[in-house]
Amino acid sequence: MKNRLKVLRAEYNFTQADLANKLGVSRQTVNAIEKGKFDPSLPLAFKMSKLFQLSIEEIFQNEELE
């Protein structure tokens, strides 16, 4: 699954550690999601959606559906 997390993080001027702290996850998890190595759970995706005030679809794009 593709995502815009890295871009959004840069727009908000967050480091990976800042974002990890705000989401209540490890920095390793933020890094793995940004690199597309790991897809977050629905609750974590909703947390990101709330934090960046975007819909989940605006953050994550399912390549299989495109």
Partner: peptide, 11 residues
């Protein structure tokens, strides 16, 4: 590297 609250709790 900055340690997050989550990491402190896990530790």
């Amino acid at each position: 590297m900055k340690t997050t609250n989550w990491e402190i709790q896990v530790k």
